Computed example of a mutant assay.
Amino acid sequence: MQDAKYFSHSWKLLTRDKGWVKPILVLAIAMFVPIVGPLAVLGYALEWARLSAWGVDAAPKQRGVKIGGCLVAGWRAFVVILVWMLLWSVATSVVTAIIAALRIRLLSSLLSLAITTANLLLSLVVMVAALRAAIYQKIGAGLSFARIYEMVSHDAAGLFKNVAIPLVTMLIVGGICTVSGLLVMSLAMPDILRLVYEVEYLSATSGSDPSDLLAIVGSILRTVMPASVLIGYVSLVFSVAGNLLLANSIGLWMRQFNVGAWGSPSDPLPVTPAPLPPVSSVPTPAPQSQPQPHSAAEPVTPAPAPAQPRTDPAPAVAPQPRERSTSPDGETVVPLTPHRAATDELGQGTDKE
């Protein structure tokens, strides 16, 4: 894979349409909904990344998003991520126990640093697994460790470049929370000091009225709660934007593996390295000789292409024989792929204001 700027390409796609910030603001609000909200946001990000993996440049959809489809995609990704993290937790626990038994302080410090670094890199590998499950629409595809290792080992340098996205996101969110938290504490400090004084006085004597404590607590809550909600929402806006950029950057990285030529989840990968095309204001349609992927923008119905031999370059690894579908009159038509391309959860193209 040539040196591709995945982040800049993903940022151009994210901000290409007018009103691009509206989906981010809505998704940040959805994050306040327990369980369902985070799953839907994760599914939305993966559906957009899946389109980029197919080789189609499209901005995130702003209207008509099928929430049910996003929830299903998010739940599928959650199961994949959970399995990966459980296996990683078991592995790190075993290694930590062995190092602890040796009682060598230097090894323990080095192990802690190594695990922290590995956690960041593993988060990218897990996102690759989740996106692969989204492409196949099967949980098992995200647990195909051999195929995922094959992808990561082919271009680990390109994949791990994306580690800067979660790092920068954490720095931004951490800075917002720290500065805003100190500001809120300074505003509430007089009431906090008064509360401490009333508690000490009440414990020393029995003449204090407990209602004074309730009044002070209410004053603190009226100051802290609205500010905390606002700080949390602003932090979620940046977190959602970072997650969208990360997922789509990995989708752009996965584009080099010729997703349209994939067979079953256990088939070897047909790797066809190619540079990223420039981002334009006009959406790029998917190849007519392949099934259309799910899109992150409004649907476009392409004209049927005439039957002709495939002109795609031969994959580096010969694909395995695939099943073939038949038309109503019994004539064999096109090979089946792991994608249900006839459905449309997010569509193809861009929204028009």
Rank of each mutant, 00 (worst) to 15 (best):
V279T: 13
R222L: 15
E323N: 06
P226F: 08
P285L: 12
P293Y: 04
K352G: 11
V334C: 10
I216V: 15
P321C: 05
A30C: 14
F160K: 04
L82I: 08
M170Q: 09
K12N: 14
N258D: 15
V72D: 07
D191T: 02
S186G: 05
K22E: 04
P285K: 09
T92L: 14
G158E: 03
E198Q: 14
V56Q: 00
P306K: 02
E331Q: 13
I24H: 08
A45G: 07
Y136P: 02
A274D: 05
C70G: 00
S235W: 00
S235E: 00
I139K: 08
V168Q: 07
E298M: 04
I139H: 08
W48F: 06
A101S: 13
I99Q: 02
R194M: 06
A77D: 01
L202C: 09
A91N: 09
V80Y: 01
M127A: 12
K161W: 06
P210N: 06
D191A: 13
H9T: 12
L171P: 01
S235H: 00
K61R: 15
L111A: 07
S266D: 14
A303Y: 07
L39I: 10
Q290K: 12
R16Q: 12
K5A: 15
S281K: 10
S219L: 12
D155H: 07
V279K: 01
T350Q: 11
A261F: 01
A114T: 12
A157W: 05
L245C: 12
M254A: 13
V168I: 14
D212E: 10
L336I: 15
L246M: 09
H9C: 03
G174T: 06
L346F: 09
W54E: 08
L121S: 02
T116H: 12
F160W: 14
Y6Q: 09
C177Y: 11
M185N: 02
A318D: 11
A296G: 15
M170S: 10
S109P: 00
Y149F: 13
